[in-house]
Design a protein around this nucleic acid. Structure first.
Lengths: 210, 210
DNA sequence: GTCCGCCCTAAGCGCTCGCTCAGGCCCGGG
DNA sequence: CCCGGGCCTGAGCGAGCGCTTAGGGCGGAC
């Protein structure tokens, strides 16, 4: 009946309670039907409120999407930055980045779907702000690959193109992942870490950090 | 002003002329704004007609999407089937499949975007029909990889998962590819053929068919 | 010339959308 | 006790939606 919350609440620091419930309801609705096919009545209903209540906490339906998008992008970016700045060889860091990033996209695939595929529904300035976050995401992946090329761990003729492909591959997990499917988020993360190291020309199985 | 047509017209065999123009206008509009954010007035306007004209050739807006989706999926599936059934080693066939498939997704990225990302907007029976086509697509890729594993050309521990990842990687090109960007469709196809062979554990550069 | 059938348009119907507004409940401070 | 502000609801506005309907123009058969 109520909003479908994720297992570890990603919106824990949003207050007041009603605003948080609306956010979670928005994520569920947008992920299921898409932004434009979702009505404010549907969102409010999932949160157990009347349609008018939405406008006490958010100025428009678009602002609700913007908040979701901002929180989601920052969480995903954080995962990559931590891996980039962590200890270990470039191969360990790339494997760890992909493993965690993919796992997040699988576990929170409803949020990730909204974050990755409803960007076009944002207004002009809000979209520009989110696109900037995305460029940082891209730079983080590229940076790890560059480290590996410099150290000789990787063999990558086209660093920009490979970084783009790696990110594209990981992000698309949100589209096809199904919680009722046969693979757990952790399994997909491990598989993808392996595939990405192969793309980077790293010999042997994907290493775990020490 | 008029509908934006692709360089090689993919809708050549759709008649009458007005129906084809509406299809092309629908593709352009859906790709730009998404199905739900597109109005029938917008589609008709791009085709240079009044809103009512749409309903002479298509029963509903959803049927227009269904036609687009059907034609697009069949074109993409055809590319993979031809590569699967072609001559050459598994590595040559996989490289060729990816090269052509990716190139199509880049060249026709507006069509591909609609085909890949607006599936959820289809009605129940129409969606089931399209999903069946998609399963064939998946099977074609898996089949080539299985051939390579059997012949010893590939080293793939998880065939199902790798096939899924390969397809996901290729399909997502439609999302990020930008015609004004720095890479041509052919360049992206070559890069991706290389990356996919690495994912399949094939040593050396991606071979061209004889 | 006359008529028929195909394409098309102008006008508009019924509906649902995002969003607003006047007012009610409830809880903490005096 | 009363009051005031934060949170919420019921009712509904104006707009734009998908789609329909009545009829006009026009080219080919006779």
């Amino acid at each position: 009946m109520g909003a479908q919350t994720s297992r570890t609440d990603e919106w824990a620091d949003v207050t007041p309670d009603a605003a948080r419930r609306l956010l979670a309801a928005g994520v569920a609705a947008f992920a299921e039907r898409g932004y434009h096919a979702t009505t404010t009545r549907d969102i409010a209903g999932r949160a157990g409120m009347s349609p008018a209540a939405l406008y006490i906490h958010y100025r428009t339906k678009e602002e609700l999407l913007y908040r979701i998008s901002g929180v989601g992008h920052r969480l995903a970016l954080d995962i990559l930055c931590r891996a980039r700045d962590g200890a270990g060889t470039p191969a360990e860091r790339l494997a760890e980045a992909v493993r965690r990033f993919v796992r997040w996209h699988a576990e929170h695939h409803t949020t990730a779907r909204v974050v990755q595929y409803e960007l076009g529904a944002l207004g002009e300035e809000h979209r520009a702000e989110i696109v900037a976050l995305r460029r940082e995401t891209d730079a983080a992946v590229r940076s790890i690959i560059e480290d590996g090329v410099a150290s000789g761990d990787f063999d990558v003729p086209d660093v920009r193109g490979t970084a783009l492909a790696v990110l594209s591959l990981c992000v698309d997990v949100a589209r096809w992942f199904n919680a009722a499917g046969e693979r757990t988020p952790a399994e997909v993360g491990d598989l993808y870490a392996d595939l990405v190291l192969r793309m980077a020309g790293h010999p042997g199985p994907s290493p775990r950090p020490a």
